[in-house]
Design a protein around this nucleic acid. Structure first.
Lengths: 213, 213
DNA sequence: GCATATTTGTCCGTATGTATA
DNA sequence: CTATACATACGGACAAATATG
């Protein structure tokens, strides 16, 4: 199966990137990975393409593939698009019944459990899941894809600045608050709350980024 | 050379797809293209991957690559995201000075000239340029990328229904009107006009799609 | 339903060009 | 400037799945 081989490789690399084993700026050697993962160059390059499409790798001609290092401008750019799309989705969610919010609360509860045991990596994953489930309520394949990529890039920055607890902890609470507001049925109010939420998140991330540099 | 062989091959195929030489549903034979373009299979397949990530080709396991056939649901999905992003960009464009609108008017004038000589293919290209220049005013790399892909997919549908004049002609006028409204400086009014514009466009495209099927 | 031909999926070895020490 | 390391590109081979008769 063509996708399974390349995707299996992509899964391995995706985990290494999101968990920080491959930090921003790292170069991925074709030769070394071909030997280690025991796949052909073609298959490995296909995996590289998949991850490039997700924004988790960048390709530089004749130099190789690297884990991208995002700067402050990237953070502003990412959050601008996140606000546009996520808030628009939420604003369109009038009268949704309660059980459609179930995936959201599942992500909230998972984050709370992970926070309780101090696993900030898992808190980060649950936070991504929360936002993916949130936009999934719009039922748009393309919105899902775009947001998935934006979240992966944001996570890259989170990892680069490397103060997981202070960055992730506030969202454990705010995600639940947001889900509750959505449950009240006032989509406009929820959209405004999300806009504030994302603005705060952006500011904190920028501050952490500066402190780190 | 700043461009890899795979990217050059992708350019050739991209043009054939967007210009309709390779219509939706067409299968791209590896053997035939390897012979014609005089590249290796690996390189051709690399180009296939590039275009797949742009949404201009779809890969079917052990069957090959095809120009995608988009349906009505895709049109709705595409226009939903277009409205969200394009209107949000326009709404944010308060007090922009006149010469930033120059690229927009250049696209408008190119479309008018192409329409005058009956070249609807070029009108379509100019229309895409208009919208790309429009969102470029936001100055966001990621917004540019997302919209570029959305426009490419929309154009795929335009080709499938194949009544270029009736579909393209209205926008020659409406693009100029929209640029004029932007020039007045009322971003909110321009955003509302664009929302109407895109809704009309969506309806016409869906109607044409139904008539064709 | 079966056997065959065609096409894609995967991998390897080698040659060439590019970037970097 | 030279040398080394590495990515790019090619062509061939075989396996696997699909399409055809």
């Amino acid at each position: 199966m063509t996708m399974s081989t390349a995707e299996r490789v992509a899964d391995v690399l995706r985990r290494r990137i999101t968990e920080g084993a491959l930090p921003p700026g790292a170069r991925l050697s074709e030769e070394a990975l071909v030997a280690e993962l025991e796949v052909s160059r073609n298959t490995l390059r296909e995996a590289f393409r998949l991850l490039s499409h997700e924004g988790l790798l960048v390709h530089e001609l004749h130099r190789g593939v690297f884990v991208p290092s995002l700067d402050e401008a990237d953070v502003v750019d990412l959050y601008r698009l996140r606000r546009t799309i996520e808030c628009d989705v939420v604003r369109s969610l009038e009268d949704l019944d309660a059980d459609r919010l179930r995936p959201l609360y599942a992500a909230v509860e998972y984050a709370e459990a992970a926070a309780a045991r101090g696993d900030w990596m898992d808190v980060g994953t649950a936070n991504m899941d929360f936002h993916r489930c949130l936009v999934a309520l719009a039922g748009s394949r393309r919105v899902d894809e775009v947001v998935r990529r934006l979240l992966a890039e944001v996570r890259l920055v989170f990892h680069a600045v490397a103060t997981p607890r202070r960055l992730y902890e506030p969202y454990v609470v705010r995600n639940r608050e947001l889900a509750d507001i959505l449950g009240e049925g006032d989509a406009g109010k929820a959209a405004d709350a999300l806009a504030d939420y994302l603005r705060d998140s952006e500011q904190q991330l920028i501050a952490a980024h500066r402190a780190h540099a």
